Simulated assay, not measured.
Amino acid sequence: MKILKSIAVLSISLFLAAPAMSQQLKTGDTYKTAVGVRGLGTSGLTIKHFTSGNSALEGIVGFYPNAFSATLLVERYAPAFSEPGLNWYYGIGGHIATQSDMVKGDGIYRRETSEVGFGVDGIFGIEYKIREVPIAMSLDFKPFFEVATDGDAFIALDPGLGIKVTF
């Protein structure tokens, strides 16, 4: 539980301090909207939209065997290593997930239980927007804490590798 509190405090501190410590992203390094896929941990479809020069909203729809999740994140961006198109990002958000356990009996599968989970997510990573083509690639970690309706609780680091088309 101390790890979860530390992650939450760090995420909120970085998010609130971002305006004071981040530089404006350079024109040409940014885009307004991107649509793509995220793999590794939560795998699925993603859409990101910048609401200002350094802030974006990102939605991730995750698919798993017998499960589905929807995540919304508020993210802040800052240039990384003075390299055009390379940016750090971090943020916070939440998700809702549903899972059904399938059991095989008498030669057929049937749904035995269904749970709904609600969670708090952080995110931190690095993204590279290729200047010559409308593509952005990212590598991130999206740690989350989730509580399900059946009383179970989960903590995960949730690494992700993404590729998006930008416009």
Rank of each mutant, 00 (worst) to 15 (best):
T30W: 05
V37Y: 10
L40K: 05
E58R: 11
L40F: 11
S55F: 06
G39R: 14
Y31L: 06
Y31W: 07
F50I: 00
E58N: 11
L57S: 09
E58G: 06
Y31R: 00
D29K: 09
Y64S: 13
K32D: 14
A34E: 10
T51N: 08
G59P: 12
A56Q: 08
T51H: 10
A34H: 11
R38K: 07
S52C: 00
V37R: 01
L57V: 11
G36D: 04
T42R: 11
A34F: 10
T33H: 04
I47F: 13
V35F: 14
K48S: 07
K48A: 14
K48E: 07
N54S: 00
G36P: 07
F63Y: 15
K32Y: 13
I47V: 12
G41D: 15
L45R: 06
G28I: 03
L45E: 06
A34W: 04
A34G: 05
T46C: 08
F63S: 12
T51G: 10
R38L: 14
V37D: 01
K48Q: 12
Y64I: 05
D29L: 02
Y64Q: 11
T46M: 06
I47T: 08
V61Q: 12
S55N: 11
Y64V: 06
T46F: 01
V37A: 02
H49E: 00
T42L: 11
A34S: 01
G41K: 04
G28N: 00
I47K: 06
Y31S: 05
T46A: 09
G59W: 05
G28S: 02
G41S: 07
L45H: 08
A34K: 00
T51S: 08
L45G: 07
T30R: 12
P65T: 10
T33L: 03
V35I: 15
P65A: 14
R38Y: 09
T33C: 05
T42F: 14
I47G: 12
L57I: 13
A56H: 03
P65N: 09
H49G: 00
G62C: 03
V61Y: 03
T42M: 09
Y31K: 02
V35D: 03
K48C: 06
Y64P: 10
L40P: 05
G41V: 14
N54A: 02
E58S: 09
A34M: 13
D29Y: 07
T33V: 08
I60T: 13
K48L: 14
N54L: 03
I60R: 13
V37E: 03
Y64M: 13
F50P: 02
V61P: 02
E58I: 12
T46G: 05
I60G: 05
E58C: 08
S52K: 01
S52Y: 03
A56L: 10
F50Y: 00
T30H: 04
V61A: 10
V37M: 08
N54P: 01
A56T: 05
T30K: 08
Y31C: 05
H49A: 04
D29Q: 09
T33I: 13
F50V: 03
V37I: 01
F50G: 04
V61L: 08
S52W: 00
H49N: 08
G28Q: 00
